[in-house]
Structures are given as C-alpha cells and as structure tokens.
Simulated assay, not measured.
Amino acid sequence: MTNTTSRVALITGATGGIGRAITNRLVQDGFAVAVHYAGNKVKADEAVDAIKAAGGQAVAVAADVADEVAMAAAFDVTEAELGRVDVVVNTAGVMLLSPIATLNLDDLDRMHRTNIRGTFVVSQQAARRVRSGGAIINVSSSLTRLQFPTYGAYAASKGAVDAMTLVLAREMRGKDITVNAVAPGPTATPLFLEGKDQAALDNLAKAAPLERIGTPEDIAEAVAFLAGPARWINGQVIFTNGGIA
C-alpha cells in the first residue's frame, strides 16, 4: 500500500471525455485517484502515467460496472494501493438513441445493464466503502427534462439514476457522507460531437441562455465542488447545463 495523506477518489468511466476531465480536476485538487475503465486499458494506463509523471498518485482499475464481484475487486485494489476511498464518482454510461416505437429492446437492456444496474452496483459498493466525510456523486443527464425525441430510453435510465441517488442520500443518514448527482446538458465530448454538423451544434448552443455548449471541464468543476467543499449539498440533482433546462 502506498503511504498517502491525500483524499482518494475512484472515478468510473474515467477514460471518457467527462470522466477524464473529472479525473484531471480531482488530481489538481490534490486527490489520489483510481482510474476505472471497462475495456480501454491503453487510455487508462496513459492517464495513470501522466498523473504519476506530474507527481500525483493513481492506479488503473478494470471492471464491468454491472458486475458486483468485479466492482468489489476494483474497490479492493483502490484500498490496497491508495489506502482508502473518500469519494466515488460514477460517470460510466451507455447512450443508444432511437424512437421508442422502434427501439431495439437489446439496446434497452444494454442501457439498463450499464446505466441502471451499473449505477446501483457502484453505489452499493460506495455506500459500504466510502469513509466518513466523503461523497458519492453519480452522473445523470439533463435529458430527463428536455424531452428530446429519440432519447426516451436513455432519459428513462437516467431518471432511475436520479431516483437511486436521492434515496441513497437518505439511507446514509448519520454517516457524514453526501450523495448527489450532476446532470449535464449538451457537452462537447468526442462522443457527443460525433455525427453532428455545425448547424446542429449552433442550434444547441443557442438553446442555453449562456449561448454555448458545455465543456467536460464545466462538469468537472461541479463534481469537484461536490467532492470537496460542498458539505451542505446532499440528496440533490445538480443540473449542470448553462440553463438549458
């Protein structure tokens, strides 16, 4: 085990656009981090190497978020290598789009497995492992409010994330652990930008009163606040979307 006085965060989906920004921000704030990945070991190792090269502490952990045995092992590695778990940020998710009438139900099951079961498994482990004074932060979506066509099944899965988050916050009574969700709006990640022309991006940017699309760093800022000084924010879904919804 590495000797450390840093707070420790485990970030699921840490190699994605938002997950990577959250990881980088928490490292800047002095956290040691467990960089979780499901399949892209190369990206996870690159992130860990960059953090270590800059003087930080990090370890890569692999697991299917919906597999309770694998996720328990990821928490075990985090505790063994970094000493404890103070903060869990669950960004892992799958988004598959289709009108409800024509959705392939295999896609529904895939989103259910990652977005709902995966969030439940990670939250369950976090509820057992996070130390007093810590935080559990799930990533939801502003699409639960926006009613965009083709996003019905995805929005439904994120509505379940909201419900779990709010209930878990109450179940953690007396443990001095906050439980919240951040709900990003349109955010300029490679996955979001893929397949959209400039006109579509311009329309989305105009929809928010701040007249731009969010950045992964915008979401990371909100997560860092919840992971650090925001001890009186609990049991909330924070809509990080520039006012679009």
Rank of each mutant, 00 (worst) to 15 (best):
P186D: 12
T12C: 03
A169K: 01
L108H: 15
L26M: 07
G17M: 04
G185K: 03
T23E: 04
A66E: 09
K158G: 01
M1L: 10
A163P: 01
G19L: 09
A74C: 03
Q124F: 11
L226W: 04
D67C: 02
D29Q: 14
S132C: 11
A181Q: 07
M95Y: 13
L97E: 14
T215S: 15
D29S: 08
N203T: 15
L143K: 06
R145P: 01
G134C: 06
R7W: 07
K41T: 15
V89I: 12
S98T: 09
L103S: 08
I219R: 00
G16E: 02
L201I: 05
T102W: 02
L166D: 05
G93P: 06
P229V: 06
L103D: 07
Q57W: 10
I233K: 04
K43I: 01
A127G: 10
V223A: 03
N90L: 09
V223D: 10
P216G: 02
A58T: 10
V182Q: 01
I22S: 00
A54L: 14
Q57S: 10
G56F: 10
V223C: 03
G174S: 06
A199L: 11
D107Y: 07
V42F: 00
A60P: 12
Q198H: 05
H112I: 13
A58Q: 08
G55M: 05
D197Y: 14
M95V: 10
A14G: 06
N203H: 15
A153E: 07
V161H: 05
A53T: 13
G195E: 12
N115S: 08
R170D: 13
A72L: 03
R170G: 14
V161W: 03
T189A: 11
M111R: 00
T4K: 00
V130H: 08
A181S: 14
T102A: 09
L105V: 12
A208L: 06
D202G: 00
L97I: 06
V65N: 02
T2K: 14
A200K: 07
F225P: 04
V65D: 05
A80G: 07
A222K: 02
Y37T: 03
A155M: 02
N40Q: 03
V87Y: 08
S132E: 15
E68R: 14
G133M: 09
L204P: 00
G235S: 07
V179N: 01
S132N: 14
H112Q: 12
M95N: 13
K196Y: 14
H112N: 08
V237C: 02
V139A: 04
A169R: 00
V77E: 11
V85S: 05
V48H: 11
A34N: 12
R170L: 12
M95T: 08
V94M: 08
T178W: 06
P229H: 02
D176A: 10
A169Y: 01
G235H: 10
V167W: 08
A60K: 01
I213W: 06
L103A: 11
E211I: 07
I213V: 13
L82S: 08
T4I: 05
G16N: 02
A50I: 06
I22D: 00
V167L: 09
N90W: 10
M71H: 01
P190G: 07
S98R: 13
G56I: 09
A62Y: 04
R110T: 14
E46H: 14
A127H: 04
D109M: 13
M1I: 13
T15Q: 12
R145K: 15
A63F: 10
D197E: 13
P190F: 09
L146E: 13
I136Y: 03
V61E: 09
